[in-house]
């Protein structure tokens, strides 16, 4: 096996208006089969992808927000959310879905997947990646 690489998916677009958010999510789920160190970043309008209470019945599109809740099952457990992007949009972490993962090594304890970080902190995490995929 080749060594494990750090993959970060950077999400910067709101869902539904364009196909980026859904495409990114699908690539993440497919890519999760390859046993890499995967993380997601939500910046700019990307933070709207994981808003709580999305309801798409009126626009006739599939509401894929609940699929983010499956990310933990796919061992994608690091979701970085940039604080500055939330603040610029009048949002706090309470406006986001509660996303968790179960730690098998810790008696299946549910742990939060969302990591609220500052721009500077996220910049450091991003700089440390082997591969960055932008959506």
């Amino acid at each position: 096996m080749s060594e494990i690489k750090k993959f970060m998916y950077v999400n910067r677009k709101a869902p539904y208006g364009t196909v980026y958010a859904l495409e990114s999510l699908e690539v993440v789920l497919i890519g999760a089969a390859f046993d890499q160190d995967v993380s997601l970043a939500f910046v700019d309008d990307g933070v709207y992808q994981i808003m709580n209470g999305q309801n798409t019945t009126g626009i006739g599109m599939k509401n894929f927000s609940s699929t983010y809740k499956a990310l933990g099952d796919y061992e994608v457990t690091k979701l970085y959310v940039e604080k500055e992007s939330l603040e610029a949009r009048g949002l706090t972490v309470d406006d986001l879905m509660e996303l968790t993962w179960e730690d098998e090594d810790d008696d299946y304890e549910e742990k939060p997947s969302i990591r609220l970080v500052s721009s500077a902190e996220l910049a450091e995490v991003m700089a440390d990646q082997d591969v960055v995929l932008s959506f």
């Binding site: 089969a33 499956a70 099952d73 796919y74």
Partner: peptide, 13 residues
Amino acid sequence: EYQIAPAIRVLTK
């Protein structure tokens, strides 16, 4: 619940 059909290893788990 999740709006996806799970991948096989996710399913088995």
